[in-house]
Amino acid sequence: MLESMTGYAALKGDAIGHNWTWDLRSVNAKGLDLRLRVPDWIEGLEPALRSGLSKSMARGSVNLSLRVQRDEEQGTLTVNQVQLSAVLDALADAETLAIDKGVGLAPSKASDLLNLRGVLETSVEDTDTKALLAAITAQLPVLLESFKDMRRKEGVALEAVLLDQLEQIEELTAQAAEAARARRAESATILRTNLARVLDNSDGADETRVAQELAMLAVKADVMEELDRLRAHVAAARDLLAQGSPVGRKLDFLMQEFNREANTLCSKAQSVDLTRIGLDLKAVIDQMREQVQNVE
Rank of each mutant, 00 (worst) to 15 (best):
E3R: 15
M5L: 08
G7D: 00
Y8R: 05
I16S: 11
I16L: 10
W20V: 02
R25K: 13
V27F: 02
G31L: 04
L32W: 05
L32V: 07
D33H: 11
R35D: 11
R37K: 14
P39Y: 08
D40Q: 14
E43F: 04
R50Q: 11
S56R: 10
A58M: 06
G60V: 09
N63T: 12
N63R: 13
V68K: 02
Q69E: 13
R70C: 10
E73F: 12
L77K: 12
T78G: 08
V79Q: 12
L84K: 09
V87Q: 12
A90G: 03
D93L: 14
D93P: 00
D93Y: 02
A94D: 01
E95H: 10
A98H: 11
D100V: 03
V103T: 12
G104I: 13
K109D: 02
K109T: 14
S111T: 13
N115Y: 00
L116T: 10
V119D: 07
V119S: 04
T122A: 09
E125M: 05
D126T: 14
T127F: 05
K130F: 06
L132T: 01
A134N: 09
T137R: 08
A138L: 06
L143T: 03
E145Q: 14
D149C: 08
K153A: 09
E154N: 06
A157G: 09
L166N: 09
E171W: 07
E171S: 15
A180F: 02
R184H: 07
E186A: 15
S187G: 10
A188K: 15
L191S: 06
A196V: 06
V198Q: 03
E207W: 01
T208V: 13
R209Q: 13
V210H: 00
A211L: 11
L214H: 04
A221Q: 09
M224G: 05
R229L: 11
R229K: 09
A235K: 14
A235D: 12
A242K: 15
A242E: 14
D252W: 01
E257L: 06
K268F: 05
K268W: 05
A269T: 03
S271I: 02
G278P: 02
L281P: 01
L281T: 03
K282A: 01
A283I: 10
I285G: 00
Q287P: 07
R289Q: 11
E290I: 05
N294G: 09
E296I: 06
